[in-house]
């Protein structure tokens, strides 16, 4: 787990991220909603940093890589892709990934309609029902939910943070994109939850229970 709301499998130099929602800032701005423009590049800058630091070869995106149609931010991605042209990108289509396949082709993104299997891991966008029997794979990675937890301390202190939510069968990743909301989950006792918190300008991952 990386403090950037992504998972890194060092052995394979593979980065797993979900719900980046590229182009969301542009989508809002096009509608006349004045989201700070600088935010449009933020996620690409983070990705850039991680990829350079860890020498990532391969990026798996578990859906909602793009928020909507082509706009300024998506053109920024185009430029970014030129820099990171050797990176392998696999994308499971999420409900937000609505651009035409040609555009994904142009970006050299391998598209998977619903899921793909890799080293006995299953990658999907939406979480599976917990009661489902896993056949031919050991564990599932998914997104869609934008999980977060609300932590309560003594005397009404509360704090809500994005989290990785590990259940018996699957890991639901936090949304990678900075301009994304959170859905507060209520984990059951067996689940493991890791929050991503910012402390003195450093992101950290902490286990909570």
């Amino acid at each position: 787990m990386l403090p950037y709301k992504a998972i890194y499998i060092e052995k394979h130099k593979t980065l797993i991220a979900s719900d980046i929602h590229l182009g969301k800032v542009g989508h809002f701005r096009n509608a006349g909603i004045a989201i700070p423009g600088g935010l449009a590049e933020a996620d690409l800058i983070s990705l850039d940093k991680i990829i350079k630091e860890l020498e990532v070869n391969e990026l798996f995106v578990l859906g909602d890589m793009f928020h909507s149609g082509v706009n300024y931010d998506v053109r920024l991605f185009d430029a970014w892709r030129d820099v990171h042209h050797s990176l392998d990108i696999n994308l499971v289509k999420g409900n937000h990934d609505v651009m035409s396949d040609e555009i994904y082709n142009h970006f050299e993104i391998r598209l998977h309609k619903k899921y793909f299997l890799w080293n006995r891991f299953l990658f999907t966008h939406k979480p599976l029902d917990e009661s489902v029997q896993l056949n031919g794979c050991d564990y599932v990675f998914c997104g869609h939910v934008h999980p977060g937890v609300r932590l309560t301390g003594k005397a009404k202190q509360t704090l809500s943070l994005p989290c990785f939510h590990f259940t018996e069968k699957q890991c639901i990743l936090p949304a990678f994109g900075e301009f994304t909301g959170k859905h507060i989950i209520k984990p059951n006792g067996r689940d493991r939850v890791f929050v991503v918190a910012k402390s003195e300008n450093e992101y950290i991952v902490l286990k909570v229970d």
Binding site: V149, L151, T152, G153, K154, A155, K156, Q157, L159, L161, K186, P187, N188, G189, V193, V195, A197, K198, S199, E200, I204, L206, V208, D209
Partner: peptide, 24 residues
């Protein structure tokens, strides 16, 4: 109504805080 005042840093706060499972 009790408000709590604490001067701990966020990291410590997170550690100290309890994640209360709102059980169904």
């Amino acid at each position: 109504m009790r408000e709590k005042m604490s001067s701990e840093k966020l990291e410590d706060r997170v550690r100290k805080m309890q994640l209360k499972y709102e059980k169904d």
